[in-house]
Amino acid sequence: MKEFSLLELTRRLGQLVVSLFALLVVTFVIGRVLPTDPVGAIVGELADPAAFEAMRQKLGLDLPIYQQFWIYLTSLLQGDLGTAILTGNPVTKDLAQAFPATLELATLAVIISTVIGVPLGMVAAFYRDTWIDQVARVISLVGHSIPVFWFGVVGLVIFYAGLAWVGGPGRVDTYLDGLIEPQTGLLLVDSLLVGDTETFWNAVHHIILPACILAYSAMAYITRMTRSFTLEQLNQDYVTAARAKGASSGRIVVGHLLPNIAVQLVTVLAISYGTLLEGAVVTEIVFSWPGIGQYMTNALMIGDMNAILAGTLIIGAIFMALNFISDLAYLVLDPRTREVTQ
């Protein structure tokens, strides 16, 4: 029954399209309907009425709302998100420049949080209700409760200003800035591609602290979920059977447990990744990280709605795409759904 899978896939794709459309409507409403005076924000309060009216027509604000939405939609599909006031560039160009920095930060954070969070959650489940479990619980509770931007500030003061273990704000030290021609935009990858180890290590020094701080809040969630997934599995007969035939704990984890919680874990990781992209926005400000978050905040300061909405749209779309991927993971990875299809 291959059709089942395809049908399911089209259904999910349809949902994704509907969600994306809803996101467009929301950003449209936020950008064009809610602001009381979008024209005044651009031409200034004191502009003469003629200039005001000219800008109003230029922005298409004299048109009926559905026509405005249609124009918004079609220009968006042509890759035109408007011009940023701050840089004077098309917003798409700015975002393309800023996005890799955010991506690099969030990706490293998701790797760190997975590498630490998954084993920690498993250990907590194995040693349930012992001090190890309690420690894991406290770690994850604090991670759930800590304001990430504050943690960033404290981290900078301790590890950069105090101990000088890590690099300060920015992606690299100023004297290395802009030396590497961006290819992927990911500085760690680019510097390795051209074999510039000095820049690479400098970049590592700079990214490690924001990545760890970002990772901590995601790790809290990953640990907690891994623990409960593992607990669910530990009560199953197959684990008892594996124990009875003399399998070691390591073998049970790698051979039996992990495959069974893999699908759920992928879902959790996808969600965490989305949350991390979002968390990166506030973290970037603390670390002067030239990503989307910083770009959006700078735009906020001068009320540049084009830039803010484009950023919202990009992060929202990625967020939804990640949700979609985690849904797909169920279909592709879970053998139980596969059995139905045969």
Binding site: Q15, V18, S19, A22, L23, V26, T27, I30, G31, L34, P35, G274, L277, E278, G279, V281, V282, M296, L300, G303, M305, I308, L309, G311, T312, I315, G316, F319, M320, N323
Partner: peptide, 22 residues
């Protein structure tokens, strides 16, 4: 369906855009 759509919005970013507009 509507609930799911809103659930898939990134909350902080949306709040940010919303606060910026209002």
């Amino acid at each position: 369906r509507f609930t799911d759509i809103v659930l898939s919005f990134p909350s902080l970013i949306l709040a940010l855009a919303f606060a910026a507009a209002l």
